[in-house]
Design a protein around this nucleic acid. Structure first.
Lengths: 209, 209
DNA sequence: TCGCGCATCGGTCTTGGGACCGATACGGCC
DNA sequence: GGCCGTATCGGTCCCAAGACCGATGCGCGA
């Protein structure tokens, strides 16, 4: 049973989604939210498998809500559903971690099918969005490897990844060369890197750059 | 009426595609091709609206065939269909100009639907491919800097970017340490880099990794 | 034939990177 | 009060990195 949260500011839309989803086998609506903020709290409370998220909502928009939900609950999949098909929505949604993006005029059967796809861990976009994504075809990889480093170390890592020498980093952060060396040394240990080159690679993998 | 060319090296596959497409309203198979080269010439001769293209074919693979067809006949839409779902296929196909990418295990109804989408000018990818495209999209590379370096230098650069030391690169390429140092030195000059760290960054920008 | 780019190799020399040792200070926590 | 993590700093030691010098052989085009 796939547990779904419906987030949309219009009660009418929520109701029709609820009807549609409830009538589909294998799905269950576990909550509704009328704002982005509500969606975030509801996601934390109800732990849905899937969130049907509208883009335009008061208080907090769907993009920001998606960002928080994905950050807090990586296993929750977010499917953006919107009336509009604007680029910034799509890209913003993807950046925020959404697993899919569909228009509200998607036929019900198609929507249910899409929700199955999303819930199974795959991703899915509306054809028009896919076309533009391909047109913008530029693609780097990699999910964020959780780096267990301190804030200061992260700062140093970023500068290392930008190609700064230890001396330059020292200048940039207003600390001594020794301090930078200590931080770099700790980073090398923590990230299991042999040289600063490996740090750069790790930073890229974690898209800290 | 959407005119379709079927390109696949296996006659059995071609036949089943032909049956499927012929039975679908609005579609008409106007030709078949068993190799990439045949697909190119058939496209020039028959001017299909849509090409169902296999990736793996003798003489010329589907990617290269797609590149030529798209270059010669921009109005012809190419839908890649393959048994395999390998990254290089998808990205290669998109780079070549394909409008879509599906797996052969796509249900017939879904395939026909997809062909309609493609023919209408939109794009469409298999969900797994979409997911990875999104992953790559979320971390966009600044596409710039075409690198004016020799093939050998490029090889060295890739290894540098993977974090190998000069000694390791020497071992890996079966040359002496001196040679590697020379190449690295030339790379530093050509790419205006101060240290190998800058080489790593440049390699990432040029998405050589 | 000559020149040129490329790949290959060797040497010397300087310097930055990094390991490893030490230390102090501050803040939170039990 | 004592402990621990974090940030700060200093010193020594070793070595990879990189600059800069030299060289040879090969293929290719003028």
């Amino acid at each position: 049973m796939i547990r779904v949260l419906v987030a949309d500011d219009q009660a009418l839309i929520r109701a029709s989604f609820r009807r549609l989803i409830s009538s589909a086998p294998g799905f269950q609506v576990v909550g509704e939210a009328a704002t982005g903020a509500q969606a975030v709290t509801a996601s934390a409370r109800d732990r849905p498998d899937l969130v049907l998220m509208d883009v335009r909502m008061p208080e907090m928009d769907g993009i920001e809500a998606t960002r928080r939900i994905c950050a807090d609950h990586p296993r929750t999949r977010v499917l953006m559903v919107t009336t509009f098909d604007l680029d910034e929505y799509v890209y913003g949604a993807l950046q925020a971690g959404a697993a899919g993006f569909l228009l509200k005029d998607t036929p019900p059967a198609e929507l249910i099918r899409s929700m199955n796809v999303i819930a199974s861990g795959e991703s899915l976009l509306a054809p028009t969005a896919t076309r533009r994504l391909i047109q913008r075809f530029v693609n780097p990889p990699s999910r964020a490897a959780r780096l267990d480093i301190t804030e200061r170390e992260r700062e140093v890592l970023v500068l290392v990844a930008r190609g700064l020498s230890n001396a330059e980093i020292a200048q940039s952060l207003y600390v001594s060369l020794s301090t930078v060396k200590t931080h770099v040394s700790n980073l090398l240990t923590k990230l299991d890197a042999r040289t600063r080159v490996h740090l750069v690679i790790a930073a890229h993998k974690a898209h800290l750059v």
